[in-house]
Design a protein around this nucleic acid. Structure first.
Lengths: 156, 156
DNA sequence: CATGAAAGCCATGGTAA
DNA sequence: TTACCATGGCTTTCATG
């Protein structure tokens, strides 16, 4: 990355490579993106400092640890007051089975994705946890039959 | 992991730690989960061999690279024939702006998440790319106002 | 059979020119 | 950019519970 904060072609290649496989050594990465190892290292530091390149995470196969079922759930709030929204979002934050939450335009207020073991597991979550929250007025759950694509890579 | 393939408490701690931060060294990891470095190493190898622990990826801040807008889009297929589904899923695979795709139960056939720069960008994608696909009969797009939670960590 | 401790080797990151 | 060097992490061995 040049000092003007712009991302150039080499930066893009670095980001793409690291999004696909962060276990690459700087040397492998260097030859893959067509730059020197030292240059790669400096660019990575700059991208981290700029907050563009964030965490390094290891992925776990959900099905293998008993979380093979995805449910997408639309949520309607009882109130749109700031406190109600903050309370709900804080609640979402604290529930590890909720892996994604979007505040939505349109007829529903939120869309969340939940990973569960099975239908019964979801029933428990819905009845006891989600619908028990004071901010939640209603929910419409949709089960995923399969996840045909999942990537953490943002296109560049 | 014992030879029976079961995941014990230490394995769970290893998985949790690596899901949160895969840049930990085996030694740091070891003391964090309360085991020796060698034991940690063996367990990680076993978890990889079992396919439980998969890729290591680096995350990129979508907003910083001009992909700050999320759109959730329900899709109805023209046909449910196997070839039509395969063709659509292959198409999804090849479009990097589509980061997630679920085959759904209920009134819609698929739910996809798309990351775009702005509304105009999405308009282009919808009109020229998505609706241009022969398998797609219709689509209902919902814009996310914000992403309040996103994690790659599966609860254990 | 899994673990913890210990040690050596090698690759790697970081820094120099 | 290239080259180098020292650091430290990965991997194995071995004894133990």
């Amino acid at each position: 990355m040049k000092q003007d904060g712009q991302i150039d072609e080499v930066d893009r290649r670095i980001l793409s490579a690291l999004q696909a496989d962060a276990s690459l050594s700087h040397q492998d990465l260097a030859e893959r993106v067509g730059a020197s190892s030292a240059s790669c290292w400096r660019r990575i530091k700059a991208l981290e400092a700029a907050g563009i390149l964030t965490r390094t995470v290891r992925l776990v196969d959900p099905a293998q640890v008993g979380r093979g079922v995805n449910v997408l759930c639309n949520i309607r709030m009882r109130s749109h007051a700031r406190e109600a929204r903050a309370a709900f979002e804080h609640f979402v934050d604290g529930r590890p089975e909720i892996v994604e939450c979007f505040s939505m335009s349109g007829e529903w207020d939120y869309l969340i994705r939940i990973v569960v073991a099975d239908v019964e597991d979801y029933n428990r979550f819905l009845m006891q946890t989600l619908l028990g929250h004071p901010s939640v007025a209603g929910a419409a759950s949709h089960f995923a039959l399969s996840m045909t694509k999942y990537t953490t890579a943002i296109p560049l």
